[in-house]
Design a binder for these strands. Structure first.
Length: 542
RNA sequence: GCGCCGGUAGCUCAGCUGGAUAGAGUAUCAGACUACGAAUCUGAGGGUCACGUGUUCGAAUCAUGUCCGGCGCGCCA
């Protein structure tokens, strides 16, 4: 148990012996900024003063009379009613033993029995991934990693839209490019894909099949569609693997459409009275739940809209026993949230069974000007290009560093020009420094008790390390990988400061050296593990 | 018009279930390697938390009204 957890339960006990029952969420423990305020502080007395019917300071006084712990050096009341805790140095140091024993399992919460599905990227297999997908991939993967670390049984999933208009246009575009290769002019429509990547695919087909696909009939149409989807999907999978993202499951719209799943689902919704016809189309009464208008599920031409199979897909996910399904979507899809939640509610699921994480657009700047991206013109800044230019680690870190709620301005010049300006190197360097110290001090050995560490910087580091497990839980709860990045930056900074101010390896002071190396080893473990959550590697040497 | 997201230092952003003097990075300026990696460290300057009103012991944080920016509002996906 970390000191934070100990304090929390001690406060809870003190409260109840004062006759106050408090929720866990009402008891906040925070690390202090100012050493004069002790190691940890709580505002619980101010927060609960109204509930207790007492002045904050009086309540605080009463509470500290009831708090007993061997780990506490002293307790003070300050300001309007803060309770400041000073922890015994030896007790702060004990976290090192825990970290070294547990290794990368430090911060790993016990399985909590909850299943979560995180669906992300899910780009249509009609072309290359672009920057928007990069953000979705970085955030989605890190979010899923966070959930795993926080004790959830987590699945990473990709939904492949391999049906419908978009893929028909894909097939047509490839067919056009193929014809061009034989000198037959072929005009691409406005809705077709103009990306040059498709020329390569057409060339592949020509190499494999010669001119045998020049005839235009239903069979060759389907062939071009299938070939295009497979080729693009293979490319996407490779791009994602190179980016460190491996999905546990791929689901296909074509599988959802197999059999009579869609018809049966629609019938079920009809039976419940949520379906009606208007002007030749069929509508779902989503506004009866949390949508602001009803949505069509069958067009007047008899085809399903994209929405209908999507509903079936989400029902399919829920039927697999998840307590929560999460969709990561770009900001242009936010209108989608309430209609899908409504559809799930029709089936009896709660509104919170689906959470949609929206991330705002990425703007790219090059030579001081914004680069507009467009999937169809072929002038997009492709995911693959970006990763080739800046490296996987830098891109993943920079895309995870900010909340998805904010627009991300990605300065390509900066990312390309000097790698050292990327904050990821700051963290990786801290790790490399730790590693190199441990190599140098290999023959000296390590004291993992932490009992000899008494400096201010050392206490700072120990408290930061102890904070790791609770940081994981709150970051997972908030689906906020950027909190991990923030944690990494602070820890790296403290490590660098410590290093600059302290001679870690001192052969005239072997006991002290062993203790410091113990601390350094704990740092190495935690910073590497934190980076791994974001999908960033921690090299031993740089 | 309606809805969602944002507006905090020159720039990019944390902080938002109300708490101590609003923080980082970067940029600018001034310093530090014959100690373990200077991809680092130390210090300085830099703020009307977009604006008004309200709630209270206390508001960047909550409510409300404006202003500005992005996105969405399709029988597209």
């Amino acid at each position: 148990m970390t000191n934070e957890e100990l304090l929390k339960s001690a406060i809870k006990e003190a409260l109840s012996s004062c006759g106050i029952e408090a929720l866990d969420s009402e008891i906040a423990i925070e690390r202090t900024r100012d050493a004069a305020h002790g190691d940890y502080a709580s505002n619980v007395a101010m927060r609960l003063s109204r509930k207790a019917g007492k002045k904050p300071v009086d309540l605080a006084n009463e509470l500290i009379g009831n708090i007993h712990s061997d780990n506490i050096e002293k307790i003070e009341i300050a300001g309007p009613g803060f309770i400041n805790f000073f922890i015994k140095k030896a007790s702060l140091g004990s976290i090192i033993t825990t970290i070294i024993e547990k290794g990368t399992d430090f911060g790993q919460a016990e399985p909590n029995g909850k299943k979560i599905n995180v669906e992300f990227v899910s780009a249509n297999p009609t072309g290359e991934l672009h920057l928007g997908h990069t953000r979705g991939a970085a955030l989605g993967d890190a979010t899923a990693n966070l959930y795993k670390k926080a004790g959830y049984d987590t699945t990473k999933e990709y939904y492949v839209n391999d049906c419908g208009n978009q893929v028909a246009h894909l097939g047509n575009s490839i067919r056009c490019r193929y014809h061009e290769l034989f000198g037959e002019p072929c005009e691409l429509g406005d809705d077709d894909y103009h990306g040059v990547g498709l020329i390569k695919i057409a060339q592949e087909i020509k190499d494999k099949y010669g001119d045998s696909k020049l005839v235009d009939n239903e069979e060759t149409k389907a062939f071009f569609v299938r070939y295009g989807i497979d080729a693009n999907l293979a490319g996407i999978k490779k791009d994602m693997a190179d980016f460190g993202v491996v999905f546990d499951k791929f689901s296909y719209e074509s599988d959802i459409r197999k059999g009579n799943t869609i018809e049966a689902t629609l019938q079920e919704l009809k039976d419940k009275g949520y379906v009606y016809e208007k002007e030749g189309a069929t509508y779902l009464n989503t506004s009866a739940f949390c949508d602001d208008k009803d949505r069509p599920v069958i067009k007047a031409d008899g085809c399903y809209t994209y929405f209908m199979p999507d509903i079936c897909y989400h029902y399919n996910k829920m039927s697999r026993g998840y307590d929560l399904i999460v969709d990561m979507l770009g900001a242009d899809h936010h209108g989608y949230i309430n209609r899908m939640k409504s559809a799930l509610m029709m089936k009896g699921y709660s509104k919170g069974a689906l959470e949609v994480e929206i991330y705002q657009i990425v703007r790219v700047y090059k030579d001081g000007e914004e680069v507009k991206m467009s999937k169809r013109t072929g002038k997009a800044v492709a995911h693959r290009e970006l990763v080739e230019w800046c490296g996987k680690d830098a891109v993943r870190y920079l895309f995870c560093e900010r909340s998805g709620d904010t627009h991300l301005d990605f300065n390509l010049d900066l990312a390309l020009a000097k790698s050292k300006e990327n904050p990821v190197y700051y963290a990786q360097y801290a790790h490399a420094r730790c590693h190199s110290l441990l190599e140098l001090g290999k023959d000296i050995g390590i004291d993992s008790t932490g009992s000899k560490l008494s400096g201010q910087k050392e206490s700072d580091i120990l408290k930061q390390l102890a904070e790791f497990p609770s940081m994981i839980l709150s970051a997972a709860e908030a689906r906020a990988p950027y909190k991990v990045a923030g944690y990494i930056q602070k820890l790296a900074q403290t490590i660098h400061e410590y290093y600059a101010a302290t001679k870690i390896i001192d052969r005239n002071d072997l006991d002290g050296t062993k203790a410091r190396l113990g601390l350094i080893q704990a740092c190495e473990i935690v910073i590497k593990d934190a980076l791994a959550i974001l999908g960033v590697t921690a090299p031993d040497k740089m």
